[in-house]
Each structure stands twice: as C-alpha cells, then as structure tokens.
Design a protein around this nucleic acid. Structure first.
Lengths: 215, 215, 215, 215
DNA sequence: CATGAATGAGCGTTCATTCAT
DNA sequence: CATGAATGAACGCTCATTCAT
C-alpha cells in the first residue's frame, strides 16, 4: 500500500510523497492518533528519513497545513476572474472552494478540523490563510457596496463580521456537503449564494438570487 | 492550582467539580492531549476517584459533551419566546447562543471542536444536539415562508441547506467573536441577522435588517 | 448473591462467612486476580470489616489456606481406622481424600494450585499440612513393611520418596478426577491403589490389588 | 543486575535473552506478580523493546511456555531409545525428566505451576505437551501388558488413570527433588520406578524393581 | 541514504488500603 | 460496626525520537 517503492528520488519529490501520506493519515486518524510509523510506512520510506527531512511530528504537521492551505487558496484564486461583478466573483470563488474541498477531503480535514483542534500554534497557521480569504471576501463586499451606491456607509468592522460569517457558512457547508453524498459543488455554492446574497428575507418574498447563465 | 482542596464532599458535588475541570482541560488541550492526571489535579482530587465516578476517559469526555450540550440548548431555548415572529425568534436565539458561547469558551470548544474531531461516537453525541438546533431553524424558515406568502415553494432539501449554512455561520461567528475581544453577543447576532435575513444584496441596496427596538 | 445480609452476627460467624467467600473467589479467580471488593461483596459485608477482622489480603489468604488445610486433613483422618491393616488404612484414606476434594473444588484449588503459585510464604503454609500427610503415609509404609517381614531394610529416605510419590499421584488424580465428570472418588482410589500397591508389574501379570469387600 | 548490557544484538539473540529473563521471573514470582519492568530490567533491555519483540505480557508468557515445553519434551525424547523394553524406556525417560527439571527449576515452575494457574489459554498450552507425555506412557503400559501375556484385558480408561497417576507422581517428585538438596535425578527415577513398576506390595515382599546394570 | 535496534517519558487504568462519619 | 469517600503506588502498554551500521 502507499507509494510504490522507488529508490534514489530527489529530495523534493520524496518530501511531497511524505506530505501526501501525512495529509492522508492526519486527515483520517487525527493529529494525535496518527503515528509516525504509519506515515513513514504509507509514504514508502524509512522513519529516520522522515525525521531527516521534516524534523519532528509537529514540523511535519505544520508543513502539511502550509501546503494544503496554499493549495486551497490557489484553487480558489484560480477560479475567480478579477474583472467581473462582485456576485459573479463570489459565485466563482465558492464553486472553486466547494469543488476543491470535495476533491481533497483529507486536506480539508487537516485544515478545518485537525489544525484547529490541536494547539494554538497549528490554529495560528491556518488562521493566516483564513484571514487572507476573509480579506478577499471583505474587499469583494466593500467594492460591491461602493458600486451599488456612492456612499459606502457599512463600517469596516461590520463588513469584517459579514465576511467572517460568509466564510464560516462556506466552511460548514463544505463539511456538510462532504458528508452528504450526491451533493455537488454547484449545489452547495447555489445554496450559499441564495443565503448570503439574497438573504432569507428576499427568498421568502420569492426573489432568490439567480446564478449567471440562468437558474 | 485548581479547586481548593476540600475533603469529603458528596459524590454529586465532586462529579460536577470533575466535569468542570475536564471541560476546561479538554477544551484547551484537546481530547487526546488532555491527561487524566492533569484533569484530576485540576479538579483537586486523586485520579482513582475520577475513575471511580466516571469510569474512563471516554466516559468522562462523553459526560462533558452531554452536560455542555444540554446547557447550551437550555440557554438558547430559554432565550426564545415561541409566540413571536420568526425573525424575532431567530434574533433572540442568536443573542442567547452568542452570549452563552462567550461565557463558556471551553465548553464551546469541547462541543464545536473536540467532540467532532475524535471519533464517530463523540461526534454523534453532539450531532444529536446540533440536529435539534438545525431542526428548530428549519422550522423557523418554513413558518416564516408560509407567513410571507401562501404558497411555500421552497423545497425541503433547499431549506435544510439554508439552515445548515445559518447554523454553520453562527458557529463560526461564535468562535470569531471569542477570539475578537470587545465583540459583544449583540453585535455578533446583529451581524448574522443582517447577513442571513437581509442578505448582502439588500445590504448593498441600503436595506439592512433592523433589530427590534430600533438600530 | 452470596450470604444473606443478616446484621449483628458474632465475630466468629462473620469471619467464617468471609472465609467462605474468600475461598470461593480465590479458588476460582486465583489469588492475584481476586479483588477484595469482590470478596467483601460476596461475603455480604463491607470492605473495612474484612480488613478489621483479617488485616490484609495476605492474611486473609493465609487464613483460607489454614482453614482448608485443617478441614482436608480432618476429613482424611476421620476416614481412617487406626487398627486396620496398612492397605485398608490407605484405601480408606484415599477414598476420604478424593471424596473431600471432589466436594470442595475451590478449597482444593486454593491448597493445591493457588497457595503453591504465589510466593514462598503461602507455599510453606500448605507444605506444613502436606508434610503431615506424607508423614502419615510414610508411617503406614514402614509399619506395613515391618509386619510383612521382620527386617525393615527400606531406608528412611527411600520410604519418604515413596510416600511423596504416592501423595503426589493422589493430588494429581484428584485434579484429574475433578476435571473428568463421572469419575467417582471410589474409582480414583481404586486406580491409585492398583498403581501404588500392586504396581504396574503385578498388574501386567494379572495380579491387581483387590479392594476390601471384593472387586 | 541481570545480563551484561551489550548493545545492538541481533533480534533472535535478544529474544532469547528476554525469554530467559521472563522464564526466571515468571517462574519465581508467578505470572501476575511478575512485572514487565522487572523482566525487561533483568534481560538488560528497555521495556518497549520487549513489547516490540513479544507484543504483550500474554504473548511473552505463551512464548515462555512453548519454549520450555518444547525443551522439556525434547530432553525426555532424547533420553529414550524406542527399541528397548518398556521398563527400560520408562526408566530412561524418567531420568531424563528429573535431570531436566532439576537443571531448569524456573522453567519447570512455569510449566507445572504458573501455566496451569492463570487462565485456560495457558493451561491448554501445557496440556498439549502433557497429553503427549501421558500418551507416551499409556502406550508404554499397553505394550508392556501385551508383551507380558497375550490377552491385554486392561481397559483403556483404567490405563489412562494409571498413566495420569504415574505422570502426576513424577511431576510431584520433580518438585520435591528440587526442594530436597542432594537428591539426584537417578535417585528420584529409582524411587518412582520402584513405586510404579514394582508397587508397594512387591517392595514389602522384598521384590523391588532393579535398575538395569544392577542396583 | 536506508535500516534495524533501541529507549525516555508518559498515559490510562486498577487495586489494596485507610479514614471520617 | 457499617458506609461512602478517598488515595499511593504501581502496572501494562505506546510513541516520538535517536543512533550505529
């Protein structure tokens, strides 16, 4: 099981194999229940090599978090075209987000569950990435508000809270969608757009948000 | 450290002391990193007594989850008056929720982070409580939709997703508010009502949701 | 379960109840696996009372050994009439022995298995009783030899070995008979008499030993 | 204390060292009273290494039983020449048996006392070996009877009891000889041959069994 | 580099035992 | 006496980590 045993690979490649294995084990077993033995075996390398390259369990976990966080933000960024209207950007970003988390459940588990549950240090590591996304969403809201009417009277702190709520709802939906088989990234994104953009009030008045290209 | 060493307490009292200590340690260290030694010491008792009363680490953790879940739902229920309009009920429930999580950060960590990360059994324990809350919110949305216009054409699955998003946003905001000093429960509730009830679209058109009693 | 809970019994009676329970638990679970909690509960008394009367687990076990050893030797002695011929005395003693061990398997387990397996002190305790029985058998053999022919040329040490072998065979047969349902004390005694008195050589020549009163 | 601290030994050697230490400690303290700490220290290794190689206390004990049982049966088998007459085979086997148990008192304690006292599983492990020996002795008796006179009218159950008594007597004498300094294996074997082959009746008539090569 | 050998430190759990009421 | 409350001391077991080859 695990990677095929090939000898004499360059360090960078070996490291990625180890991180692959570690993300999988950490994501499924949890940080503490994951054993370095299992990770090394799953990566197809010897345990001392893991320590040689990644120093310790903590460092290995941190490296996992960083790699997965970078991959997730990259995926979201790649899904968004800067020039388009705000709701379109949000819609594209959410679809990219839900698609990525569905395809990488172990990575998402590492970021959303494990990293936040085992000590301030790891939590701070994801917090950095999260702040980046929240900042992106905040900017989106501010720009949209500025476009909608000249006077942006939404105070900065208020908008930060809104962005936080939106991101939180997205994270929660991602986990929920992963646990509900048959739920597509597009459905999850549509649900959240309706909720966040139109709001429950509008929905009840029969005025839902409509995805670009028709419902 | 911990409780003052008082001897010969009745069992019920000692058990609550142990649960207090356990919630604190579990909430801060995480389930696996928490040691029974530290919990016992923090509770001001010897380890064998903890085992005599609560059997095992798993049972102790389960007891923590149950107690905290019951306390949280009780707090939310106590904040809501059934007869009032849907948005008023939601507003009241959210204020109660944010107030409680702010006052019991360790309990909230146990429920929201630790219990979900360490085994299906513990997750199922909180899932029961969460489903209760999601069901409450779902009902709220359905009733509100029925009141708004005669024909409630929101499909059930759609509503479930919305309720999930709302609860997820609330959970996320609770953690955020705990980490942002100076944020009151009222502010967090207002932010979420604006986000969820009015929606970003309405907000940008200058039509925010207004808390009862004026902004 | 265990003794009926009756209050205010004289000390001697309570002690016997405790020893009854202890012999049963020790015999079934083994010395170390037996817990004082279970013994106290089985005896229908509180744990501190057990300690008040019998001081410690070691002392309790020692008391069990002594009582059971005394009972066993008494049973054997009661089965033997001193005036009769040697083989008749041996036959009677063996029947009494096998009958007693069959009726008191827990006591027999305490004496033969548990006491010998858990430390020199306990083993010495049974050794005392065993030596008494071996001495009795030794005397029996010496007397029989003296009766058979004037010159008792069997050296003392040789006879001690023979008695030891006889007692060892009896002990082994007792355990074997307890484990083989349907084996009566009389059968076990007959087997051993054949083996010990006639010997395999005689048996093969068709000259078995015949129990008094016919085969 | 224990083995000299030699580092980096091959696994097979270390395992034997551990089994040596374990047999000694188990034999002297008993299964339950023996601690893995003491065994590890006595073997000159750390506790985790014991677990790495032998998995658990149960497995370690089982390994001890198997090794000692194999060694004992091998020693007895090596002492017996199949072609010789039955009493000669018995004589040779007994000498080998008493010699081995005298040289390995701890192993004998493990097999005869500890394994039989601590759980059905362990007892079954030795039972296999014992049955093998009892079967050997049974066969010896049957063959001897067949040689002595054409019609072997000793019923099978009777013979099984005789073999059981013989083996039991041997086991008991082994323990006795170990406790009586100055008793040689040859003396013990002679005593038992006299007892079992000639029988007490013959002894008293001045017709003892004579070891091959004269008394 | 890869591997087998090896361990310090700690964790969950249990039990005989005591003491205040 | 009987009981509930309480603990010191240990035990089986595991894991991250290191070093010699």
């Amino acid at each position: 099981m695990g990677a095929v045993k090939t000898k004499r690979m360059p360090r960078a490649v070996r490291e990625q194999q180890m991180l692959d294995a570690a993300v999988q084990i950490f994501g499924q077993r949890g940080y503490m229940a994951a054993s370095m033995d299992e990770i090394a075996e799953h990566a197809g390398v010897s345990k001392p090599l893991v320590y040689l390259y990644l120093n310790s369990k903590e460092d290995l976990f941190t490296a996992c978090i960083r790699r997965e966080a970078a991959a997730l933000t990259a995926a979201v960024r790649a899904g968004v075209r800067p020039g388009l209207p705000a709701d379109r950007q949000l819609w594209d970003g959410l679809r990219a987000f839900f698609a990525y988390t569905a395809e990488h459940p172990d990575g998402w588990s590492v970021l959303h569950l494990q990293a936040r549950t085992h000590g301030e240090g790891f939590a701070a590591e994801v917090a950095t990435m999260r702040e980046e996304i929240v900042a992106f969403v905040t900017e989106l809201i501010v720009v949209a508000a500025r476009e909608a009417h000249r006077d942006p009277d939404l105070p900065r702190r208020e908008v930060a809270g809104l962005a936080e709520a939106l991101v939180g709802a997205a994270e929660s939906l991602a986990t929920w969608a992963n646990a509900s088989p048959g739920t597509t990234a597009r459905q999850a994104a549509a649900t959240l757009m309706n909720f966040a953009w139109a709001g429950l009030g509008d929905l009840m008045d029969g005025r839902p948000w409509t995805p670009p290209g028709g419902p």
